[in-house]
């Protein structure tokens, strides 16, 4: 079941535009939203919740138009921009106290459970928390109002590998409980560890929406020592670029038999780096 459908979303700025963005989210799945810096990830996420006014398009959560059901939908979702980047010098208990008054489904027991599980002290301020703990506090607030969809913008950026892994594990456990996660990041290795699906945005345009497995399987990375591949084959290489020893390029998996050189499985980072290189 789709819990979010984005249809023909457009947003025009002077020097950037989101172009006809379409995608959907399946319930209980983790979807990675990737793209390089400035590709339109945050603008897309902000457009979903009317933080920015889309020029056109429709956003449908739980089969209901966001515009017409903003209050009800916001009760059922959570939007986290990184960890906590607001009221850094207020105590967590003050922020919680204010936050809970907005939600009809606030569950104090769940709140206490996660605060204990994540080892969070209510008397601390966000400024006193590590980046990882800030994300955990944000997640605690989201889970305490029983959010069914978590929209996370770069939740693992700036975290050390251990903290990142911890956050990913939490997200996977939440997905097992039926919570849907849309997770924007440019740390593609995080998605390989936890995401089911992938949405790839480039210059404000969605260029791929697929399961992560099918997406990565559709490409291969070739490596060769000198640049002597003939012109016909060169046209089939996406983003030919220098490597430590020779050159690397991305090819469609079906073109693999045409190339007589070292060929390896493509990971998200390979795909992204070569695709970005190609279009540039």
């Amino acid at each position: 079941m789709n819990v979010l459908e984005v249809k023909s979303l457009c947003k025009n700025y002077k020097d950037f535009s989101l172009k006809n963005v379409n995608f959907s989210l399946e319930q209980g799945k983790i979807t990675g939203f990737i793209g390089r810096n400035g590709a339109g990830k945050t603008t897309t996420l902000k457009s979903l919740l009317n933080f920015v006014n889309p020029t056109s398009g429709e956003v449908i959560f739980f089969n209901k138009s966001f515009k017409e059901n903003e209050f009800e939908i916001k009760q059922r979702i959570a939007f986290l921009l990184g960890g906590v980047n607001y009221y850094l010098n207020k105590k967590l208990k003050t922020i919680t106290n204010v936050t809970k008054s907005f939600y009809q489904n606030w569950d104090n027991n769940t709140y206490k459970k996660y605060m204990k599980q994540f080892d969070l002290d209510e008397n601390k301020t966000p400024a006193q928390l590590s980046e990882g703990m800030k994300v955990k506090y944000s997640l605690t607030l989201a889970l305490s109002h029983n959010a069914e969809i978590l929209i996370l913008d770069e939740p693992t950026s700036g975290l050390d590998p251990v903290s990142r892994d911890e956050i990913l594990e939490i997200l996977m456990n939440l997905a097992d409980k039926g919570i849907t996660v849309l997770f924007s990041t440019h740390i593609t290795s995080d998605l390989e560890k936890c995401a089911d699906n992938i949405i790839y945005i480039k210059n404000g345009k969605i260029i791929a929406e697929d399961s992560i497995e099918s997406f990565t399987n559709s490409y291969k990375v070739i490596e060769f020592e000198d640049n002597i591949i003939n012109e016909d084959l060169k046209n089939k290489i996406i983003g030919l670029k220098r490597a430590k020893k020779g050159y690397t390029g991305l090819i469609k998996a079906e073109d693999k038999p045409l190339f007589n050189c070292a060929c390896t499985k493509a990971v998200l980072e390979d795909i992204m780096v070569h695709i970005e290189k190609e279009i540039l």
Binding site: L49, N50, F51, E70, F71, E72, K74, Q75, A78, F79, L80, L81, N85, Y86, Y87, L88, K90, T99, F102, Y103
Partner: peptide
């Protein structure tokens, strides 16, 4: 300085 508008807009409220 405290990103109040962002924080508030994530709550179930209309602009």
């Amino acid at each position: 300085e405290n990103n109040d508008v962002f924080f508030t807009m994530t709550m179930p409220v209309a602009k």
